[in-house]
């Protein structure tokens, strides 16, 4: 019964949706705001990666909101899985094998380094704070899975998270104080394709990288330890 109702509902939705879709031709250039971004990007922002300059500068306020949403998810998850008293884990975790431990020790710093590379070069190459942060969190997932005797402190992750979020807001407020606009790119644009260029993009992406990395690691950690 339920399935039939679902199918009928979907059929109606499908019929409706064909109308606007048929007005949006696929694969052709029709966009006016985007053209401004592509042609004026280098002179206005100094970032080689146009997507990055859209994400961090033109639509920076969205990104602030997006970072906030991830923060809410991390906090909300921790509050729902919260344990009143810290349970001392009596059960001794089975130690992982030598190969796993060595591999994990060897790979963990490399993963962190790769993540940092991705978010530092966000304005030059594909990637950025979110992608780099996700890679860093994958390093922590490796720790949680294979080096179980190593304890990752969720409190410290929380502090990093808070400091990174405050940095983002503070950069915005400095822009407001110096130039009169929130999130103004107040640093010099530099030369194209250099590491120190593109105004505030590297600063914000480093903050986002730390924030996303610590948040996702905290989410994985909370799901791991509080659900056993």
């Amino acid at each position: 019964m339920r399935k039939i109702i679902a199918l009928i509902f979907l059929a109606i939705l499908l019929w409706g949706i064909t109308k606007p879709v048929s007005r949006i031709p696929f694969g052709t250039n029709k966009i006016k705001v985007a053209e401004h971004y592509i042609t004026k990007d280098i002179t206005e922002t100094g970032a080689a990666n146009v997507v990055t300059s859209v994400v961090v500068l033109y639509r920076g306020f969205d990104t602030l909101g997006e970072v906030t949403i991830l923060f809410i998810a991390a906090i909300g998850l921790a509050s729902i899985l919260y344990l009143p008293r810290k349970k001392v884990s009596d059960e001794v975790l089975e130690e992982s094998s030598l190969i796993l431990r060595t591999g994990c020790r060897f790979l963990f710093p490399l993963i962190l380094l790769f993540g940092a590379y991705i978010f530092v070069h966000g304005h030059l190459t594909p990637g950025g704070g979110f992608q780099g942060g996700a890679i860093i969190a994958s390093g922590f997932a490796l720790i949680f899975l294979s080096c179980r005797e190593r304890v990752v402190s969720t409190v410290k992750l929380g502090v990093v998270e808070s400091l990174a979020g405050m940095t983002f807001v503070a950069v915005g407020l400095i822009g407001l104080a110096t130039g009169g606009y929130f999130l103004l790119s107040f640093l010099p644009k530099g030369t194209l394709n250099m590491l120190f260029s593109a105004g505030i993009i590297p600063v914000i992406y480093v903050a986002i990288g730390f924030k996303v990395g610590s948040e996702l690691a905290g989410i994985i950690g909370n799901l791991m330890e509080r659900t056993q």
Partner: peptide
């Protein structure tokens, strides 16, 4: 911006 900044800093105040 101000409530957002305060919300981000709240865990640190909590410590």
């Amino acid at each position: 911006a101000v409530p957002l900044g305060l919300a981000f800093s709240l865990p640190i105040f909590g410590l």
